[in-house]
Design a binder for these strands. Structure first.
Lengths: 214, 214
DNA sequence: AGACTGTAGTTACCAGTGGTAACCAGTGGA
DNA sequence: TCCACTGGTTACCACTGGTAACTACAGTCT
């Protein structure tokens, strides 16, 4: 074996795989998540069966395609989360990083959030959320880990941290999705307002005069 | 026209439509969101084309199917939101209502959240989130309305209310989805912990000893 | 040289999907 | 009796994901 522990053939195969993934990405960006395997193969200058040899099935291709972006996003978020600053600043930086990413290329993140409903016809077992949004799950778990490591939440803190992790990620995602569709305000304002929500301003805000509180 | 403003024929058609929807619901609950039009038609004891006469296309059927459940859920949530109690109690009641609903029949809500990626092949315009989760959008807007009506958020309060509305709904959804998959704790604990998050406990919690704060 | 093996690539196909055109049968009214 | 209408059907279309069977060319061993 050579210095990297793989033969020249394996290396060539890996490079080919990268080329195919790039072609697939071009097509998905152009045609949306419903892009067909035929279209992807054509873009790569080949035909379907070799795609299947490399990636098994469409899910495999999409998973490989997703991995690169999720890893990149996760790295960026971890960096924001680990920056040397006080808690509020970190939260805002993390939110802003996420929003900047989805703003930069929305198609990619639409694809990541809704990756190919497969729905095996004979699968009796009900698998809610397994294919729904793996990226969100990963983000939630990751955030939960950071929260648990850094904040003292008393007994059962692990449980609380996970709930908060998934909850905050969901908040970020839903608000970001809505914002991206309507663009009702600047990114900074969205970030500040969401951080305010996490800082308890919903609880401390005054009732509107003349009605029962929310 | 008769007392309800429709002929007997129209009335019969509406009833037929209801029957078809019930059959469709049975199939979707059994086979998941990927259920085929053929299967639905067979369950209703008929064949495809009359489904298309009634609902136009699959999206139409699914939209009609979704409407009933979303309306029911929205009503329940509005009731919890409007109950005569203090703010915290209302928030908890609303969260609990949502979680109880998705717990009661998860399949229905999985269907509502991911209703049939259509992705018209020639649609160049990028429509992030338009088909992704109409129910979540509706919930977000609804909550935003309630927040705006009842809480004084100063100038630009409408904007803030919408951000919070979508954010809170996203939090509720993501945490609920995760919880439903793993069932790591009782519903009540999830509700309390999420409400704590909204009440600013993330901001007020102490750092873990020996590290920079989150 | 010549045979053997493995791999990239092809064509041609399969079952099943959403969707539609054309037709058939019964029913009420002129 | 003939006409329009309506619920329903069969038979099809283009296309999808996925696969089997084949060709063509690389390298290797005898």
């Amino acid at each position: 074996m050579d210095s990297r522990g793989q033969s020249a053939q394996q290396q060539a195969a890996a490079q080919r795989r990268r080329q195919l993934l790039e072609a697939a990405e071009r097509v998905v960006l152009r045609d949306g998540p419903g892009a067909s395997m035929n279209a992807i193969a054509a873009e790569a200058g080949i035909t379907k069966p070799i795609l299947y040899r490399h990636f098994g099935d469409k899910g495999g291709l999409y998973k490989a395609l997703a991995k690169r972006h999720t890893d990149a996003l996760l790295d960026a978020l971890r960096a924001a989360l680990d920056a040397p600053a006080e808690r509020r600043a970190r939260v805002e930086a993390t939110l802003d990083t996420y929003l900047a990413a989805i703003e930069a290329n929305p198609q990619v993140y639409r694809f990541l959030m809704h990756p190919a409903e497969d729905a095996a016809p004979l699968d009796q077992s009900f698998d809610i959320g397994r294919h729904s949004a793996p990226l969100l799950r990963r983000l939630g778990e990751e955030l939960a880990k950071v929260i648990e490591e850094r904040i003292d939440l008393g007994p059962d803190g692990g449980q609380r941290a996970r709930i908060w992790g998934h909850g905050i990620v969901g908040m970020m995602h839903a608000a970001g999705d809505w914002w991206l569709g309507e663009r009702p305000c600047a990114r900074q304002e969205l970030v500040t307002t969401m951080a305010d929500l996490l800082w308890g301003r919903l609880a401390s805000a005054a009732d509107r005069p003349g009605g029962p509180g929310f």
